[in-house]
Design a protein around this nucleic acid. Structure first.
Lengths: 92, 92
DNA sequence: AGACTATTTAGAAATTTCTCTAAATACAGG
DNA sequence: CCTGTATTTAGAGAAATTTCTAAATAGTCT
């Protein structure tokens, strides 16, 4: 719930690739994992970081867990950057 | 020159604070350092990372080095995020 | 040139991050 | 209930990051 966690989450290439994958729609942990050359445990670790940063949320169905992009947090990060760039001094 | 470096650079709170400081205008390394409770060497390390990520550029004057925010890279990051969020599939 | 100031570089220690293997949990379906 | 599949948790090792102190550069000014 702070930018710290969000930016940290975005700082890893694997996690950014996961988010890009999720752009087209929700995917199960296994489906996500199949795009990478790493164990499911490692993917699970990355997903947990994205989840803690609120960049994704999960959706249990059967015994699959589907992950979905949380665009509202992406938007918050964009606002932070816009403020940095814009130099508008009216952000609290 | 890649997002990897840029996001990594943005992932540290000290470096984000430096960028926020630079929002109001350019500052010398020493002036930046005076806002933090760390040695000048550590600030220099953070500045080098921001510089490698092209998030700031430097400007020598007398024997001071002034650092300035590079808003164009901030904009590139915003575009990446906009694409992620928007799901507009027209980005090359 | 010499002294002084500003900043960076080098090396080392503490901490954090990423990845793996192995084991645990959760749940579905016969 | 038992077996099988999907995912997470725990523990450990390797690699990267952050910070410090001490020393090196670079440039100014008398």
């Amino acid at each position: 719930m702070g930018f710290a966690e969000t930016f940290k989450a975005l700082s890893d290439p694997v996690r950014r690739d996961i988010l890009t994958l999720l752009k087209k729609g929700s995917l199960s942990a296994g489906e996500i994992g199949s795009h990478f050359d790493m164990t499911g445990a490692t993917i699970s670790y990355h997903l947990s970081i994205l989840k803690k940063a609120d960049l994704v949320f999960e959706n249990k169905q059967k015994n699959f867990i589907y992950y979905e992009l949380n665009t509202s947090v992406v938007e918050e990060v964009m606002l932070w950057l816009a403020d940095l760039k814009g130099g508008n001094d009216n952000e609290p």
